[in-house]
Amino acid sequence: MSWKNQSGGPWGSGPRGPWGSGPSSSGPTPPDIEDLIRRSQDRLRTMLPGSLGGKGIILILALVMGGWLLSGFYRVQPDEQGVVLRFGKYVYTTQPGLNYHWPYPVETVLTPKVTTINTISVGMRLGEDARRGTSVMRDVPEESLMLTGDENIVDVDFSVFWRIANAEQYLFNVQNPEGTIKAVAESAMREVIGRTNIQPILTGARQGIETGVQDLMQRTLDSYKAGVQITQVQMQKVDPPSQVIDAFRDVQAARADAERAQNEAQTYANRVLPEARGEASRIDNAAQAYRERTVVEARGQAARFLKVFDEYQKAKDVTRERMYLETMERVLGGVDKVMIDPGATSGQGQGVIPVLPLADTFRRPPAQGTQPQGATR
């Protein structure tokens, strides 16, 4: 007997189970999946353009066109410039802010960063240390070894700092801007180093070399219309080649010693020469004064002689006697005198006339044990 008998089975009629008053089928029935699918298909057919007619097609096209036009809005950041291309050709440049261009594929926009300072290193590379697992700077000899003006070799590592000055020229005039800048930097540095001797390069000519390389790079890139501005060239390391660096250091030490000795000699000369010049000037002034004094005295004596000669012409005997007396007074005035009378021979004095030494009376008495000055022998 089938359990699905609509009459209720052997337990009588009605919707009962085999246990009489068992569970009834009057509760909610599960949804029909096929019915749900059919209803969804009906609703989808009502939304198709065929059911809406021409107005539906126009509405959908308007929505699509509006979305396409709205996609033309774009924002340029403060450190960028917007370069608008129309079918791949440059049209114009926009400034930072919200801007609009014809949507793709009519126009597209490129936004390079024009205020960022970029760095390119020549002669050195940043590599990984396998042992320590850290980044290290390694030398690149094929870029850093350069020939100087006096035919020496020097190892130069330097960095170039640059930024975009003209976004249009930077994007379209040079195919590989960074590679071009690096090649121009290496070429300019080799040219400036080739005009300079090695000694100034290793000592005090770095600033002049950096300025010369920067100017030469800027002129070259401007001739290419690369749209790049070189802000700084900085020399990181300037050394002789590693094979001869010890010999160069010895030469540098010898030159430093020679320069120190020259400075000491110059210091000594700066001290001695002024003293010698002052002494020479003093001697010259003294000679001039002596000459002036001698000339004046000679002129005075000549004038006095002329005066005496005039008087002599007037009275020769009187003048002769006066000159004799003045001369004897001048000669005998400072010596001790002894008077001898040839007629007075009697006595022990044998004609010596005692003279009262009035000059010795006013002199200071000599110390004990010393002979008085002017003692008569």
Score class of each variant (00 low, 15 high):
W162F: 15
D336I: 05
N166C: 01
W19P: 04
I117D: 09
V91S: 12
G300F: 08
T180N: 07
I60E: 00
M47G: 01
G369V: 08
A269E: 12
A130G: 00
N99Q: 15
G212A: 15
L147C: 02
L126V: 09
A130R: 11
G123T: 01
T231I: 10
D79C: 00
G204A: 12
P141F: 01
T196I: 11
E326L: 09
P15N: 11
K337P: 07
K89P: 00
R45F: 02
V295K: 14
P366L: 01
V154S: 00
R43F: 11
R206T: 14
G212K: 06
T231Q: 12
Q207D: 10
A303G: 11
I353C: 04
L273R: 13
L63H: 05
Y104M: 12
E168R: 15
V76P: 10
R277L: 14
A298G: 07
S242C: 00
D222E: 13
G149E: 08
V335T: 11
E34S: 09
V83N: 06
S40Q: 13
R282Q: 09
P103S: 03
P354Q: 05
S7T: 08
R206N: 08
F248N: 03
E326S: 09
G88P: 04
W102C: 10
Q371I: 15
R138T: 01
L85I: 07
L171C: 06
T148C: 04
T93Y: 06
L145P: 00
R195P: 02
D284P: 00
G347H: 04
P240F: 02
T148M: 04
V76C: 12
I181A: 06
D35Q: 15
I201T: 04
T93C: 11
P354D: 03
S7G: 06
N197H: 12
P31S: 11
T327A: 14
R277S: 11
Y224H: 04
R249T: 08
Q350T: 02
T319A: 10
T361P: 03
D317L: 13
D150S: 02
G82W: 05
Y268H: 09
W68D: 04
D32E: 06
R377D: 05
P366V: 15
R271G: 00
N5C: 13
D129K: 08
L306R: 14
I198T: 07
L61M: 14
P105L: 03
P103K: 00
P112Y: 02
I230R: 01
L332Y: 11
Q234P: 01
Y92R: 15
E186P: 00
Q95H: 02
T115K: 10
D42A: 01
E297T: 09
T29Q: 13
I117V: 14
A130I: 09
S281F: 05
V308A: 13
R206K: 15
T376H: 06
T29L: 14
R138F: 09
A247N: 11
D215E: 15
K225W: 02
Q371R: 14
G208A: 11
G54R: 13
P240M: 03
N118V: 03
G300M: 08
A254Y: 03
R195H: 12
L145V: 00
D341C: 13
Q262R: 15
L356R: 13
G67N: 09
P49Y: 07
T115F: 03
A375T: 12
G97Q: 07
E259Q: 08
V192Y: 00
L59Y: 08
V272A: 12
Q262A: 13
D317E: 12
R322W: 07
E178Q: 12
R249N: 14
Q313T: 08
